[in-house]
C-alpha cells in the first residue's frame, strides 16, 4: 500500500485504475470472526446455535439501532476532528419533550391537557427541533468561540440531562399515542437506522457536504484556504449530529412507550465506540458510515453473545472496554505502519 512514486511511474489518468478494496472489509471480517466465536462457544457451552435463531438476530440489531442512529451523527463529527459527548443526554431530553406532545387523552395525568391525541408528526417534529437546537448550540460554540469540542459538548451533556430531569421534575411521561409508538414497534427502529445510514453514507460519499467534512478533518487550514467556510460547515455537522440524537430520542420513547429522564445515559460513549471500532479515526479525516454500521452491529453481537452465554454483566463491561481500546490500538498501529 505504501507506494513510493518514482520518476519511472506512469503519469496519472488511466481509466482502468480503481479504488483499493474498501477499508471496511477488515472490520467486516472481525464481525464475522466474533460471530463465529460465539457460534462455536454456543455449541460447546449452551448446546445450541448462536446465529441460527431469527429472534435473537432481530433483537441483536434492534437493541443497538438507537446507538447506531446516534453513531452516524457522531461519526461525522469525529471525521471533522471533533467529538460529541452530548448525544446520550440529547436522547434523554428529546425523549422527554417529544413524549410530552405525544400523550393520549385517555391517560390520567397528561402534561398538556389541551394538546393530547396530536398526530405523530407533531411530537416527532418537536423532537427533531430540540435535537437540532442542541446541535446548533454545540456547533456555534465550537465554530465561533473556538472552545474545544470536548468542552462544548461536555457542557451540553450535563445541561441536556438537567433539562430532561427538570422537565417533569423527574416523573416519567407515559400514555403515548399508538401512532407515535408505532415507529418504535417491531423492527421499525432497525428500518430507521438503516435508512439514516443509507442517507448519510450517500451524503458523505457523493455530496459537497461530505467532501467538505473530510477536508476539514484532514487539514482545517488547507480547507479554509481552499474556500471552505469552515465555521459554517462545522455548525452544519453538529446540527446533523444533534438532529440524529433527537431522532434517536424519539425512537427510544416510542419503543418504550414512555419517556424517562435517565434515557440514553452513556449512549454517547457506545456511539463513539461504534464509530471508532468501525475505523473512524479520532484524529479526523477518516471514517465511513458503513464502518460505523458494522461497528454498531459488533457491539450488538457482543451484548447478545455474552447474554446468550450467560456471561456476568460485569465481565461484559470489562471485555467491552478492552475491545474498544484494542480497536483504537489497531488503528494507531495501522496509521504508523502506513507512514513508514
Amino acid at each position: 500500500m505504501n507506494t513510493n512514486v518514482t520518476a519511472g511511474d506512469t503519469p496519472a489518468g488511466m481509466n482502468t485504475t480503481r479504488r483499493r478494496l474498501p477499508p471496511e472489509l477488515n472490520i467486516f471480517f472481525v464481525l464475522i470472526g466474533i460471530a463465529l466465536v460465539f457460534e462455536v462457544l454456543g455449541w460447546i457451552f449452551a448446546g445450541q446455535s448462536f446465529l441460527m435463531n431469527k429472534q435473537r438476530l432481530t433483537i441483536m440489531i434492534l437493541q443497538v439501532s438507537v446507538i447506531g442512529i446516534i453513531a452516524i451523527g457522531v461519526t461525522q463529527v469525529i471525521i471533522t476532528g471533533g467529538i460529541d459527548l452530548s448525544s446520550g443526554s440529547v436522547v434523554g431530553m428529546t425523549a422527554m419533550i417529544a413524549a410530552g406532545f405525544a400523550q393520549a387523552s385517555t391517560w390520567g395525568r397528561v402534561m398538556y391537557p389541551s394538546l393530547t391525541d396530536l398526530p405523530a408528526i407533531i411530537p416527532i417534529g418537536v423532537g427533531l427541533l430540540i435535537g437540532i437546537l442542541a446541535g446548533l448550540i454545540n456547533g456555534a460554540l465550537i465554530a465561533y468561540t473556538r472552545i474545544p469540542p470536548f468542552i462544548a459538548t461536555l457542557g451540553m451533556m450535563v445541561s441536556a440531562r438537567g433539562v430532561s430531569k427538570w422537565y417533569t421534575k423527574g416523573q416519567p411521561v407515559s400514555g403515548l399515542t399508538d401512532q407515535f409508538s408505532f415507529i418504535g414497534s417491531g423492527i421499525w427502529p432497525v428500518v430507521v437506522f438503516l435508512v439514516v445510514a443509507a442517507v448519510f453514507h450517500i451524503a458523505l460519499r457523493y455530496t459537497r457536504y461530505g467532501k467538505f467534512t473530510y477536508a476539514i478533518g484532514a487539514n482545517v487550514q488547507a480547507a479554509r484556504v481552499s474556500g471552505i467556510n469552515v465555521e459554517r460547515h462545522l455548525v452544519k455537522v453538529y446540527v446533523v449530529a444533534g438532529m440524529l440524537a433527537g431522532l434517536a430520542g424519539i425512537v427510544t420513547a416510542a419503543r418504550a412507550q414512555t419517556a424517562q429522564a435517565g434515557m440514553g445515559v452513556m449512549y454517547e460513549l457506545d456511539a463513539i465506540a461504534a464509530a471508532v471500532i468501525g475505523g473512524t479515526s479520532l484524529a479526523g479525516g477518516v471514517g465511513r458510515i458503513t464502518g460505523t454500521v458494522i461497528g454498531t452491529v459488533i457491539l450488538g453481537v457482543m451484548t447478545s453473545g455474552f447474554t446468550f452465554l450467560r456471561v456476568d454483566a460485569y465481565y461484559q463491561e470489562i471485555i467491552k472496554g478492552a475491545i474498544i481500546v484494542a480497536a483504537v490500538v489497531t488503528d494507531v498501529y495501522r496509521q504508523k505502519k502506513r507512514k513508514v
Binding site: N2, T3, N4, V5, T6, A7, D9, T10, P11, A12, G13, M14, N15, T17, R18, R19, R20
Partner: peptide, 25 residues
Amino acid sequence: EEMSRKLRVKTPNMYERIENLSGGN
C-alpha cells in the same frame, strides 16, 4: 485526470494518497 495529465503528475492513479507523492508532484 485531464489536469493531472497536463501537469504531468506522477502518481499510480488518482486514488493514491497525496502523502505518498514526492514534493514536486
